[in-house]
Structure formats: structure tokens, C-alpha cells
Design a protein around this nucleic acid. Structure first.
Lengths: 190, 190, 190, 190
DNA sequence: TATGAATGAGCGTTCATTCAT
DNA sequence: TATGAATGAACGCTCATTCAT
């Protein structure tokens, strides 16, 4: 078999991407290191030069991927000069089916009850909460909203979307519309 | 080893309870059927007279336990003659540390990031959402609230608590207080 | 569950028949005592009142069933007053698709390579060999044939049919015709 | 334990040989993968790098071994320039106790009624039938024999030997002599 | 850096068999 | 005679991990 050498960082990232894809598709337990290596056309042992164990690889993959998703959303949230109302209207929400990559889409439409889907959702929420809270604090300082407990409000803004996200009966666009309407209503921004 | 025979229903429930406890403590993967059987002082094979596979046992256990938790909350939600405001003030919330059994307590304070904890939380939320929506519809009919989209509101009421639930920095009672305050505020019931 | 008591001999035979049917359909390994008991609507333990072990049950079933098949063929072979030529022309051969019960039919058309099918075939052959040899000896005494070694001839007469029996390409009747033609030719009885 | 690495093909064959030996000695059911691995001083899991399941290993082993036996016989059958009579006189027959390896010997003298013995015998017969038929066709073309249905004759030639093979009362050499005498007689080659 | 054959512990599952009722 | 819950010992198989090359 041809031996292809790559720069360590590139290889590491390749492993993370491949692992994330397979974990997502098949779940943690049903994805073996052998599967990941085979998918990369690489020997099994190679994974262990970059990650000490399967679990470490998994944790890193989830965390990095959640970080990527959150990073994308954060770009929009932190655009300078926007009011909170404008932010809400522009932001993709988790539900935005217009998302341009496969994973974000899958995050919204992934198999219900799929464990990894839940895990990833929770990881994204956990990372989003402080960022949303930050924006609420800024909006409060600008006098756009009057709420006391921005931490709690941010929690509901972020985690509350999970329930809408899991509702398969209503089409994606309609869910996005309803979610934004609710958030504006809740924050008295209508 | 002395052979202890029990009524099938009793044995079945004993297995479910034992499995739930161990799954909760150690996680799905790290709990083997052998562990469960040993805990019950029973032969491994016995579990397979009652459940066709480990996964079926797990699913049944999660579902039943989530159902128990939801059942307890539902009793309070459905008390006749209460206004929505009263319901909110009386209800335990997921967060209620006064809960009198171990699991409810653990549900609120369980190991962060623990997969089973997340799974159970999500299962409880999924079961709670329609019940909360039902109460919102009744309250709306009684003229207590004016919201259009009770489905979305119910989702945020239920899933939004997950974010607060996972916040370990603030003591439980304070979290309960804040959650109720937020819900009343959100529904304009203050 | 209603408790149905039967005469021991009847029960014993019922077990043998049921076991034989399931062993035949699914093979020895893939037939459990539980399967047999379930098929009879009877408790598992009951089989152990009639047979000391699964293997003993199997051996008895095979032997008895092979004996039944052989008994039927023997009736024809031993009809008084027939010449060997008449016997050959009348006998069913293993291949006779006109056989009136399911098993004989299946014996001829059973799944190729099925282990039990082979076992049963071999058991039948082993029981048939001395009976055929006996007829050859009688025919030799009557001067109908001139062969020295009736034992070897009988072996070939009996086991040789296995090869024809396993040939699925040729229809049953044609195989029977060819087999009889060959036997007559071989014994110079044409 | 010292780790001994071998070329895949060599290892694969080693597994097949070891498995065949144990299956032959103890039967399919009573030979575990653990037994095979232990015999090779190798980890259990290794077998599963080469064969997907115990059954696949078994089938491959039987088929390969039957092929080896048949291959040896075929060499003799296909020697150029021999008449059918010479072929019969020279060929080993299944019964030939002069066979120089253990298995061939065991094939003839293996435990009676042993399932694997039967299976192997049948597999050998199935592979031999068309080869014998081929030789009969050639001999017929050369005018050495006058038989119509070479397929049926070949079947009887091959499978018929099974009966003789299983006869333990007569010593091997005598059985070989009788078999050859019968075949010559049957084909009018005496 | 990369290979991939080999390890070895452990797990889910099956099932012949037993025994208290 | 019959029940069926319970036993317990295997067994097939998986897979994270190691290591000689």
C-alpha cells in the first residue's frame, strides 16, 4: 500500500474530520478506530500517534466541531452596529435550513433520539449561552431591553430552541419564523 | 446458590430499577449485563428472559423512568382550579432540589456532560412539552395569557430550563427562583 | 396456561415428531429445546422427563425416522414371489417423488448441503444396505443374477443413489427412470 | 507472550490447517475458536482478521481440504494415455489405506457417524462426480465402454464407494480389491 | 511518519439443564 | 405429569490498543 506522508497538523485535522463524520453517522459505539482508519486509507495505528485514546479523539472532535458551528453563528451575533432586534432577525438560529454545509443541516434534521445529535446540540448550546448573554448585556446597556437576569434569559433563548428544533411536524422555515417571532415577543422587541 | 423465584412482573421491574441505577451511575457502555445480574444476585441469562437485548432493556428503562418523573410533575400541573400563575409557583420545575427521591435529585445535579443524564433530560422534555402546551392552551382559553403560538412557547418553557439546570455555579434554590421569575415575566403574569 | 396431560407413550412420540420436524427444518444447532417445547405448547422441562439430553433426543429421532422410511421401502422389497427385476421396477427408490408424505419428499429434494439431510440420508443407506444385500442373496440363490460379492454390490446399489438424488438439474421422474435402468443394466437384468 | 508475525497467506493457511484438524477430531460444535487459537499459540481475535465467522472458516476449510483430496485423485485419473481399465486399477479410491497423509487415512477410517466425516465425504464425492463422468465420456469415445448415461454411472461409481468405505468389518486392502473388481465388472472391463 | 499483524480482555448472548411448585 | 422461572457455563465476536518493521 502506498505510504502517504502529510504534515502533522493536516493529518490531525483529517483524522478529526473523518472521525466526526463517522461518529455522526453511526454513533460513538458503532464507529471503530478501524472504520476511521479505513475511511482515510490509513493504518489503524496512525490514530494513536495523534490521540491517546478513542475517547480523547471523540471529545476533541465534538468540541472542535461544536466550536466551528458556534464560531460561525458568533460572527453574525457580533457584527458591530446592530441592534438586538436586527441580530435576531439576521441570525441563522440552529434551525436555519439555509445553512450551507452538511453538518449544520444535519444538526437540525438529524435522526431524532440519535445520541450524538443530542450531545452535539448540548455542546453547542453550552458554548452559545455566554455569547448570547454577552449580547443581551450589551443590548441592556444600550437600553434596548429591560431584563434583570440576562443569564437566565440567555439560557432560555438558547436551550429553548432545542424543543423547536426537534419538532419534525413543522417545516424548517416556518419553525425559524416562529422562533424569531417568539424571541422578539419575549424580549418586548416587536 | 439459593434459587429465588419471583412473580414475573416483580422481577421485570427489579431488573429495570437495577439497570436504571447502574446505567445512571456508570453510563450505558460501562454497565454490563453481568454487572446488573450480579447486583441482583441473579444469573446473567435471566435478564434475557425479560428483555431481548441490552439496548431494549436500556430503552425501556429510560422511557419508564422518564415517564415516572413526568407523571409526578403532571399531577401538579393538572390540579383542577389553579391559574397558570399558581401552577408555575407551585410546580417543582426540573430544578427543584426538594425532590424527595434520589433520581430526581440526580437529574438536576447529575454529572455534567454525562450522556445518560442528557438523554434522560431530553426524554423528560419531550414528554413534558405537550403537557405544558395543554396547560397553556387552557390558560389562554381562560384569558390568563395572550400568546399565539402555544407550541413554541411550551417548547421554550420546557427546554429552556435545561440551560439553567446545567448551571452549577448558582445554588439550586436560587435557580428555581430565577426560573419561575422568568417564566412569569415571559408570560406577562407578574 | 392450561395443563394438558397425555399418555407417556403418546407424549414421547409427540416430542420425537416435533423435534424431527424442527431439526429437519433448521438443523440441530439452530433448534433449541425451547423451540421444541414452544412448538408443542408445553414447558421446556417436559422434554427432560422423556429424554436425558438434547443429543439423546436427536439420536433417537433420527434413528426412528430413518427406521420408518426404511420400513416402508422394505415392505415392497420383501413382497413374496417377486423376481429381483420386478422388485427394482416397483420399488420407490429414495428418489420417488410420488412418496406420500412430506419427509420422504423432502429427503429427496431437501436443501443441498443441509447437514441433517446428509445425516438422515446416510442413516437410511446404512439401514438399507443389509436389506438389499439380503434380496441380492435370494435372487442369486434363485439364479437370477451371477455376482460374487453381494455386499459390495448392495453398497453400490444403495449409496450410489445418493449421487443421483443430489442432482437438482434433472427432474425427479427422469432420475428415477435412469436409476432403475442403470440398476437393471448393472445386474444384467435387462 | 512473544509476538510472532507471519505473512498473511501463511497465517491464513495455518489457521485453515489447524481448524481442519480440530474440526475433524472433535466436530464443529465441540471445537471453539478459542481452541483453534490456543492450538496455534495465538490470540483468539486473530482468526477474525482472516475469516469473518466461525462458519465461514469451517466452510472454507472443508472446501479447501476436499479440493486437495480431489486434486490428488484427479492427477491420477487424468494421466494421458491410460485406458479406463488402467485408471481403475491404478487409482487410489477413497479407500486406499496406502495414502501417505493423515487426513486421507482418516477420511477412510474416521469415526463412524461423525458428522464432519460425512460432510467431507459428501463434498469429495460432489467434486469427483463430474471428473469421473469426464473420464467415462472419454473412454466411451475411445470405444472402451458402452454405456448411455455416463452421468448416472459416474454417480454410482463415486457415491457407491461410500457404502464400502463405511464398512469397518472388512480390512482396507480387501475393500479396495472388491471395489475395483466391482467397478470393472460393472463396466464390463474384466 | 506510517504500517498492519497481533494482542487480549471483555461483552452480549444463547441454551441445555435444573428444581421448586 | 407438568410448569416455567432460574441457573451458569460457555461461546462467538469485537475492538481499543500495541509493537516489530
Amino acid at each position: 500500500m502506498p505510504r502517504i506522508t502529510k504534515a502533522p497538523e493536516e493529518r490531525r485535522q483529517e483524522i478529526l474530520d473523518t472521525a466526526m463524520r463517522l461518529f455522526y453517522q453511526n454513533g460513538y459505539e458503532k464507529t471503530s478506530i478501524a472504520d476511521i482508519a479505513q475511511e482515510m486509507h490509513v493504518a489503524q495505528g496512525l490514530c494513536y500517534r495523534y490521540f491517546p485514546s478513542k475517547e480523547a479523539l471523540f471529545d476533541t472532535a465534538i468540541d472542535q466541531y461544536a466550536g466551528q458551528l458556534v464560531g460561525r453563528m458568533t460572527e453574525i451575533l457580533r457584527q458591530p452596529g446592530l441592534t438586538l432586534r436586527e441580530i435576531i432577525l439576521q441570525m441563522p438560529t440552529f434551525l436555519d435550513t439555509e445553512a450551507d454545509d452538511n453538518f449544520t443541516y444535519k444538526l437540525c434534521h438529524g435522526p431524532q433520539g440519535h445520541k450524538l445529535h443530542q450531545q452535539l446540540s448540548m455542546a453547542v448550546c453550552a458554548k452559545m449561552q455566554p455569547i448570547v448573554q454577552e449580547q443581551l448585556d450589551l443590548a441592556k446597556a444600550r437600553g434596548e431591553i429591560q431584563v434583570e437576569d440576562t443569564r437566565t434569559v440567555a439560557s432560555f433563548c438558547v436551550y429553548g430552541q432545542l424543543g423547536v428544533l426537534l419538532c419534525a411536524e413543522i417545516p424548517g422555515e416556518e419553525r425559524v419564523r416562529r422562533t424569531k417571532a417568539f424571541l422578539l415577543e419575549m424580549l418586548h422587541l416587536k
